[in-house]
Amino acid sequence: MSFLNDEVKGQLKGIFEKMNNEVTLALFTKEGPCETCPETQSYLEEVVSTTDKLSLKLYDLNTDKELAEKYEVSHVPSIVVLDKDKEYRGIKFVGIPAGHEINSLVNTLLSVSGSGSPLSKELEERVAKVDKPVNIKVFVTLSCPHCPGAVEKAHLLALENPNISAEMVEAQTFAALSDQFNVSSVPKIVINDEFEFVGNQPLEVFMDTIEKA
């Protein structure tokens, strides 16, 4: 089955020309039951095939345990986005970033490649001040038009400050996780597994919540 038609592939080609640097996607799957692992792999293979600036590396959660720990991967499928030096910048997609989330995937890849738009001075200073570990989970559904915006913002914050990590979580595949955080509206943003808000809110709201955490 093909995920992307020629039109979308053509669009991706054009967009990825704007990438300043190469980016690597590290996909973690595992042997045994993982319903969405094979489709996530084929999807990423199709995305990566549209440009030579992207490469895909395949890992197994169990056999590549050390790497999984380094990248803080605990669910499959998970995609870790690595920069041009193959460094982990705290950016992940937990579950398939398909449907509407193709937009967050594309924009995050552009940002990690160094061609995103910069933050305002004021925000940049606020983000730089975060000096303790912050984890942002953004729960999404693939049919939600507002969700990619929230995912991109979380990823942008992670890119700005090494103390911040951010992950998209596809709420339907990871139903147990969604239940744990009582997700019934998306995008739902959970910071350090404790502080939360709903909706694609401005970056200032992300920062307000992070500073509270």
Partner: peptide, 18 residues
């Protein structure tokens, strides 16, 4: 209960009520 069962976007949140 907004965001915890009360929803304003059916296409966004519908899948969570399967």
């Amino acid at each position: 209960f907004a965001g915890n069962g009360v929803a304003y976007c059916a296409i966004c949140d519908g899948p969570l009520f399967t």
